[in-house]
Amino acid sequence: MSSDQSREASAFHDPRDLTPFRGVQIHVPLLSVPGALGERIANASRRYRIRPLSPGVAPRLKPLTPRPVKHIHAAIFSGAEPERLITLARTYPGWAGLCYVMAGLQAYQMRQFPQAAELLRRGINTVNDDDAGRYIAENLMQLLTQVELGDGVSVRVLFSEEAVMLALAHSLDEIGEPEAALEVLEPLPASLAKVLAISQIAASLERHDLVIGLSDGLRNVDDLAAAILLLRARSLRAVGRLKDTEAAIAEILRRKRTSLLLRNAAMTERALLVLDAGWKALPRRRPRPIDRKLRPGGKAEQQEWMRAYRNKSGK
């Protein structure tokens, strides 16, 4: 198969000129920080995550905007108040789909995953009227939300179907529904973010063949690709393909600007690979314990061994 054909067949190839993804963040889980310091850092980070989106300055509404639009606009940009948006969804049924989606994203940013999954599902299945559609096109297309794709890897996504689906898939995985999360991700356009999210869930289910197949031929072009290659290396090591594991680790370390956290994780995988290779290199049959001369059996043999030892040592 030619290189062009293999590129078209790769699941991670993105045919679009412009994607909704706007930057990757690699971080260390705060649970690894011991004691009260870890709790203080975690609480501070939660306070900074309260705002559901990153719009900068809220867009101004047109003059003579109807009151329902003003109320919903204020609820979206004023802070994290999912209950306020739920009340507006019941008050204005034509805007219910948008209100539930935005309430779900706010709950997701506060890491309230059960509520986020329920609200996002409800919002996706509720049809908005034409006024709500126009409002989305005029005011929400530049909003950014941060979605977690894997352990320690998150991405900022412009408001879009992909942002909502990635947040829903992560919420479902967090509440113990990984198969449902995979179904949510399947219809999304091909992208590195989609492959990383699927690979993370598949790795947790020990579906290593899926992780390996999705990342076959991937190069370390950015940190998202490096995170996928790290999952690939772990899956390859789990199924015993040690040479391919070394190749995946080498590809992670090839790019100098790869995140230091990902490079450290790759070095850890290399150390584990050395341990696995060393164990597999040992002979399968147990060696003979000790030569018979060094392990006398009866009393006569023991006395003969002791005489030989004294003569050898000069005692």
Rank of each mutant, 00 (worst) to 15 (best):
V195C: 14
A300V: 09
E206C: 11
A226D: 04
A281M: 09
S78N: 06
M110F: 03
M165A: 14
P296Y: 03
L143E: 05
G240I: 10
S171C: 08
M306S: 07
I26T: 08
R60I: 07
A203F: 11
A181D: 04
K312V: 03
A226W: 03
L158I: 12
N43C: 03
A80L: 04
E206T: 11
P93I: 00
D209Y: 09
R285C: 03
E118I: 12
A248T: 01
G97P: 08
M1A: 14
F21C: 10
G38D: 01
R254A: 13
K256M: 04
C99F: 02
S6M: 14
A75F: 05
E8A: 15
P283Y: 02
D244G: 04
S215I: 04
Q146V: 10
N220I: 07
A266D: 04
R122F: 01
A248Y: 01
R241M: 08
L262F: 05
L214E: 03
Y135G: 00
T91V: 04
P114D: 15
N128S: 06
E246Q: 15
R207L: 07
G94F: 08
H208W: 15
L224Y: 00
Q142G: 14
R111P: 00
D131I: 02
Q106N: 05
A190E: 12
L105P: 03
K312R: 15
R134P: 00
L105T: 00
